[in-house]
Amino acid sequence: MRNFLAGLFVILLGFLSAGKSFGQNSVEMADQLRADGKIYVVVGVFLLISAGILTYLIFIDLRLKKLEKQRSENQKELKK
């Protein structure tokens, strides 16, 4: 009887672990990276690069605005 129960237990455990490996959550994701909090390092790097590129775009935009202003003033003077 005891052997039978032990056998049943082993089989059940087998089913459980098999079920787990076929289940949705067994798909390997970067869970450890997230648990360690190191994912925030990656987010930080992405953010710095995006912010840098956006700042540069704004910088070029402002430069152009200045040139456009100059040009329109020059044209006004030419018309006078």
Binding site: V27, E28, S50
Partner: peptide, 23 residues
């Protein structure tokens, strides 16, 4: 600019489906 920053943060941190191969 705001949407791009949201995309980076949300894209890396929010939940995604767990799919084989793609992971």
């Amino acid at each position: 600019a705001g949407l791009l920053i949201y995309t980076v943060v949300g894209g890396l941190l929010l939940e995604v489906p767990r799919l084989p191969i793609l992971n």
